[in-house]
Write a protein that binds this DNA or RNA. Structure first.
Length: 448
RNA sequence: GGAGAGUUGGCCGAGUGGUUGAAGGCGGCUGCCUGCUAAGCAGUUAUACGGUGAUAUAGCCGUAUCGAGGGUUCGAAUCCCUCACUCUCCGCCA
């Protein structure tokens, strides 16, 4: 959400900035400005009328006390006429305020001037790390490896829930758990994050704060208690959203709070499952573990001083990259163009890991600086000095990292000629029972 | 699922129709006093929006805000209704 004053005072800059994200926003800003002028005019008039009513009421009180009933009655009549005017104005003012609010909530963040302008495809590679492994044999893709080593069961997942809900099986499940532990440990012990364990279903206010709502409600799973399912007005009862990322609950940890002289940056890490509807994406990267309705992720969030945002983005991105580095995976960092960023982001780096079996770079992390955009929406403020003015901090988030695609890269990179997988050393202490994934022995539960 | 209690300022906590934006306390800030420390005294200390002002985000004026929404009234934190949330006890359950 943007500062009204800024839009009012620098509409041209705002228009130009948002034009890089889509052509519809200039029109919205124009409408905002139009409404804003009229809304303020009405508010001034309302304030004056109310002021008059307040003082008249006070007078009535004094007249009553003094026993001057007739004069009091006369004043009451006067206030009643003011009230009808107030009522009228309030209705108009309310409608305008609502529309203004809707517009504000539907404007994305201003892109940082440093990023490339344009639609998806205009991203720029910032750096590359590690060499994609060369194979002296035909590298298998992760589907084949999962099948052979019995690591993931897609059919069973479909039976249980539907497509996009795989069951991790045997060593696949263990490996996933090991990766979670490894990443969490590194972020907590080495990078200094405080770990949170958060609710996975959240109050609607949360995704509004982070920017998924109101525009992207259809991309999240919405949960009602059973008795509300059949009713026409689900909004009347308690309802929740399944989190599409731990960023949602973590950012809302301080929603509507004023932090008193916090020591910034605040760094939070949270592991969680994530649910995404992914409507309309069938067929697009949809095979295997690439794109799922439910997946797991370790998420990083930072809260920092406004002047520090860009530097913090570099750090949080480096924290995510560090995981790829200790796992020995080749990756590149790209900066997303204005037209391809999440709604609340001002600048986003994607980390793409090399998946040799598919001969493709796959996004495993997205690190974003949301500046004060989420802080405003979620009303998170802080005072840098006692009695100082509350100000909006900058918020950042980064996946560190998403499990399924990390798993793809890991399996495909460390496969051997005979179709096994030799795990990198850093994982050994998290999987003491085996450092080489091989097909299960006879007697293991069948994967069908 | 059943029964009850509650939701007030950074925190605790008064307050059942009229100078209550809100007593009192804690904490914070400013000053005074005290030859250390401690204590004491006085003052001050919410947020948002609008206007005015300056144009460095000071000051002044107004409005709104006592969980949310609606109602009664000239006037509501205070009365009425609806909803949300929190807590306690019982039941059920990992």
């Amino acid at each position: 959400m943007h500062d009204r004053k800024y839009l009012r005072e620098c509409p041209e800059i705002a228009r130009q900035s948002l034009a890089t994200r889509g052509e519809e926003f200039a029109r919205k800003i124009d409408r905002f400005l139009e409404i804003d002028v009229e809304r303020r005019r009405q508010q001034t008039e309302l304030d004056e009328l109310r002021s008059e009513r307040n003082s008249a009421s006070k007078e009535i009180g004094e007249l009553m006390k003094a026993g001057r009933r007739d004069e009091a009655e006369e004043r009451k009549g006067y206030t009643r006429t003011i009230n009808s005017r107030i009522e009228q104005l309030e209705a108009q003012h309310g409608m305008l305020s609502d529309e203004e609010e809707d517009i504000l909530l539907s404007l994305p963040n201003f892109p940082d001037p440093s990023i490339p302008v344009g639609p998806e495809g205009n991203q720029v590679e910032i750096k590359a790390h590690g060499d994609p492994r060369k194979f002296e044999f035909a590298a298998r893709d992760h589907m084949e490896l999962c099948q052979r080593l019995e690591l993931a069961n897609f059919e069973a997942g479909a039976r249980i829930s539907g497509s996009g809900f795989p069951v991790m099986h045997g060593n696949g499940a263990v490996l996933q758990r090991a990766l979670i532990s490894l990443m969490a440990d590194v972020h907590v012990m080495r990078h200094g994050y405080t770990e949170l364990r958060v609710p996975f279903m959240v109050h609607p206010r949360c995704p509004l704060g982070t920017g998924q709502l109101p525009k992207f409600g259809s991309e999240m799973y919405h949960v009602y208690v059973d008795k509300k399912l059949s009713e026409d007005e689900p909004e009347s009862g308690p309802h929740y959203y399944l989190i599409p990322t731990a960023e949602v609950p973590v950012v809302n940890y301080y929603r509507e709070q004023i932090l008193e002289q916090p020591s910034l940056p605040i760094k939070f890490m949270a592991y969680s499952p994530c649910w995404r509807v992914e409507a309309g994406s069938y067929g697009k990267d949809a095979k295997g573990l690439t794109r799922l309705h439910q997946f797991e992720k370790v998420e990083l969030v930072r809260i920092c001083a406004p002047e520090d945002g860009l530097a913090q983005l570099e750090e949080i991105t480096a924290d995510a990259e560090h995981i790829l580095e200790i796992l020995g995976l080749a990756y590149r960092r790209i900066v997303l163009p204005s037209g391809d960023m999440a709604f609340g982001s001002a600048k986003t780096y994607d980390l793409e890991v090399w998946c040799p079996g598919e001969q493709a770079w796959r996004e495993v992390s997205s690190a974003s600086l949301t500046t004060d955009y989420q802080a405003r929406r979620a009303s998170i403020r802080y005072r840098s000095e006692p009695g100082g003015k509350p100000q909006f901090p900058h918020l950042l988030n980064a996946s560190g990292l998403a499990l399924p695609r990390l798993m793809i890269a890991l399996l495909e990179t460390y496969q051997t000629v005979d179709g096994n997988v030799v795990l990198p050393e850093v994982l050994h202490k998290y999987m003491p029972h085996t450092s080489i994934l091989t097909p299960p022995e006879a007697g293991a539960p069948p994967m069908i």
